[in-house]
Simulated scan of single mutants.
Amino acid sequence: MTVGSAPGAVSKGRPARRVLLVDLDDTLYRVHKIPEIVKERIQEYMVKKLGIPQEEVAAKTTEYYLTYGTTLAGLVAAGYRIDYDDWHEFVHQGALDYDTLLQPDPSLRDILCSIDLPKYILTNANRVHTERALARLGLSDCFQGLFYFENVMELAASHGFDTAHGVLCKPNPRIYQLVAEQLGVGLSEVIFFDDSVRNVASAHGLGALTVLVGTDKPCPGADLALPTMHALPAAMPELMDQPGLVHEHHHTHAPAAAVEQQGGGVLAVPAAARGTSGGGGGIAIAVPAARVPAS
């Protein structure tokens, strides 16, 4: 693999990269109708199920999103009691026609499978939305694991975060630290891809090499800016290896030395396998069988 031994301009002089951490919505794909639908459903939920006056929801949605990372996190911080499964069903899978809105992306699949480094999804969205979107894009088996709302909250709770009164989500720096610990790597060994400037800036501040997706204009906190993930081979050729390598060796490139297979397509990374990065017992990381802004 060429990463580290022959670094490109972006990674020159930096620690060797061991893991790609990739956002889902508006990063792996971009369909403008999806965030529009999600925003409408969030505001509808706030009115119908939380009793917030219609004239207040637009301002609250923006305020909570900007202050807490997602509207959901803001609502919980403000004291609203929310059934998380009901929220995600109403906002995501109950509102989106995945078969119509998303289509397979074989060219992106080729790019991802040509990178001989383990790749993980990190999204604020829930498991069902994440798995459905990846399946429609044809990218499910391009990733060694998924970090989504449910298992991030489990991970947070196992490390003392008060999940009864708060939601851990990007851009909170703690989420990147916990995920890196779980994967047994330092953040200086991570390449992080996201469409959000503040998410990228937060990870960059912790030492990750960051790629802002959705624009070709760099910004503070982003080491690189790409209009889409399809521009990755030209922008970071040092990442590219022979096509299909990751797919062919799906479990051999996991960063942890020991990975236990559990039922239901879930991997748990034991604490002993995480080197010196610390952390408690293993936490479940979903492996595909098959973020929506403001959520």
Score class of each variant (00 low, 15 high):
Pro35Met: 06
Ala58Val: 10
Ala286Cys: 06
Leu224Tyr: 04
Cys219Arg: 09
Gly263Leu: 04
Pro53Met: 04
Ala77Ser: 11
Ala234Lys: 13
Gly205Glu: 03
Gln262Trp: 08
Gly214Asn: 02
Gly166Cys: 14
Val292Lys: 00
Ala157Phe: 01
Thr70Ile: 07
Ser277Val: 09
Ala268Tyr: 00
Leu187Ser: 04
Gly184Arg: 01
Asp241Thr: 13
Val292Phe: 06
Thr228Pro: 03
Val47Gly: 02
Asp141Cys: 08
Asp26Trp: 03
Glu248Ala: 13
His159Val: 02
Asp195Ile: 11
Ile82Thr: 10
Asn124Lys: 05
Asp216Asn: 15
Glu55Ile: 11
Val197Gly: 03
Pro227Leu: 03
Phe143Tyr: 09
Leu102Arg: 06
Tyr64Gln: 01
Gln144Ser: 15
His129Glu: 05
Val76Gln: 05
Pro270Met: 01
Val76Ile: 12
Ala231Ile: 00
Pro255Met: 02
Arg41Gly: 04
Leu239Arg: 10
Ser202Gln: 07
Gln182Ala: 14
Ala254Thr: 13
Ala6Met: 09
Pro106Ala: 04
His92Asp: 15
Arg81Glu: 12
Met229Gly: 06
Arg81Asn: 12
His230Tyr: 01
Tyr45Ser: 02
Pro118Gln: 05
Glu36Ile: 09
Thr130Val: 09
Leu108Tyr: 11
Phe90Arg: 07
Ala256Phe: 01
Gly244Gln: 11
Gln242Asn: 02
Asp223Glu: 01
Gln242Glu: 13
Val246Ile: 12
Ile115Lys: 02
Tyr80Gln: 09
Pro227Gln: 08
Pro233Val: 07
Leu75Trp: 08
Asp85Arg: 10
Thr27Gly: 05
Pro173Ser: 10
Lys119Asn: 01
Pro243Trp: 04
Leu24Gly: 04
Ala258Trp: 15
Thr163Arg: 14
Gln93Glu: 15
Asp105Phe: 02
Thr130Arg: 04
Gly79Glu: 13
Ala222Gln: 04
Pro237Ile: 10
Ile52Asn: 05
Pro118Lys: 03
Ala257Ile: 06
Asp86Trp: 03
His32Ile: 11
Asp162Ser: 06
Glu89Ser: 05
Leu187Pro: 07
Glu131Phe: 03
Arg132Glu: 05
Ala257Arg: 11
Tyr68Val: 00
Ile111Asn: 07
Lys60Trp: 12
His251Leu: 11
Lys12Leu: 15
Thr210Ser: 08
Arg291Thr: 11
Asp116Gly: 03
Cys113Gly: 15
Val269Ser: 00
Ala78Ile: 08
Tyr65Val: 02
Gly279Lys: 08
Arg198Gly: 00
Gly265Ser: 12
Leu24Ile: 12
